[in-house]
Nucleic acid binder design. Structure first.
Lengths: 207, 207
DNA sequence: GTCTATAAGGAGATAGAC
DNA sequence: GTCTATCTCCTTATAGAC
């Protein structure tokens, strides 16, 4: 970390950590200033309002997440089960390196309809993202038609994948506190979960 | 609803709704008083602190949830797949009638280690609850030994069930806002999810 | 750009009149 | 038991000196 660094950038970095850890409501501009080592007025000098600062970070995180989640959907020509295995693996690994992110996003969406419609607009503002469901749907239903997988609605398949992967990371802080597992035990546990989830999803599709 | 009612009881009822809807941090004692129709000092008169009031309600909800979730585990003598189908169905229906409860509990546990250890102690204070995992484990592993289901750790099976059922209700507010579905469409959607989840779990166990 | 000081409002909790 | 008034603390945001 450079000793001398753009203060605006330092504020963004500290705020990002605190928002993800404690949420919007649980983070004060004073907390952010303290973490940076400056005074609270400076946070407002650079971003005027706490909401502005938050949306800056929130949007950046949404963009990062979307691009990583959309990328593995290409390579359409590979075997469907291989592709599925790969996609779930990438999603799992992404959350593994950003464990606080799923809860952060979910928490800011639930019970805040303005933020929810902000995310909806964000999603629809880009054609790749806006067509995402259609893309997945055509891939899945082609396989159903070919008979490679059992008849299933795309909504159900997508929700199965999201539920099984995301839920692990939503509850990871609970696992950490209650299990008392070491770093290595935890890695083993997560690897085991990942394999089990992939197994379950594939077993749920085979005819 | 009786016109004249114990004020303490009214405070409990109003606080319960607000806490489940907006969380601990998102609910002020002034909000509670306003909903009851009394002044804010009375909330503190009956429960002294907001934390006291919250724990009162939180514990009651935990007890309700536990008894409902433990009950269907008896009737050990029925076929395992029938039993599993029944258990998942009961869990799903319970959350369907208490849709805000899963997020409420999760939200208060994440990033609040005091509350997490409170729940842990609560869980361990009752022998049925404390032995719950052992009970499930012996049922599951007996079936594995008999060969009725494929080899699977009990942890994985339990987490699969919880992930698939709970996640639906965590994200239900998002579904409601974004889908614009009618009451009836929503009921249909949830019924479809329930069937799919049961199908997936059973497919994931058959040899 | 960076600081101190402060305004304006909301929170939880309590004192004391009735 | 119920009320009003108030204390203390913390929040976001801004004004104004340097």
């Amino acid at each position: 970390m450079a000793a001398e660094q753009n203060l605006e950038e330092q504020i963004l970095q500290s705020a990002e950590k605190l928002f993800i850890e404690n949420g919007f409501a649980g983070t004060s501009t004073t907390d952010i200033a303290k973490k940076v080592g400056c005074n609270q007025a400076l946070v407002h000098y650079y971003f005027r309002t706490k909401e502005n600062l938050f949306l800056h970070i929130f949007t950046k995180k949404l963009e990062q997440a979307c691009s990583i989640l959309i990328e593995p959907l290409s390579n359409i020509e590979t075997d469907f089960y291989d592709k599925l295995r790969y996609v779930v693996s990438v999603y799992f690994d992404f959350m593994d390196s950003n464990p606080g992110l799923p809860f952060f996003v979910l928490n800011e969406l639930i019970g805040n309809s303005e933020r929810l419609s902000y995310v909806y607009k964000f999603f629809m503002s880009n054609s790749v993202r806006a067509n995402l469901y259609g893309t997945i749907d055509s891939i899945v239903q082609k396989e159903v038609a070919k008979g490679t997988i059992r008849p299933i609605t795309t909504v159900n398949l997508v929700l199965n994948v999201i539920s099984l992967t995301v839920f692990n990371f939503l509850t990871l802080p609970i696992y950490d506190k209650l299990s008392g597992a070491s770093e290595q035990e935890r890695r083993l546990f997560m690897a085991e979960r990942k394999e089990e989830i992939i197994t379950l999803i594939i077993r749920g599709l085979k005819k």
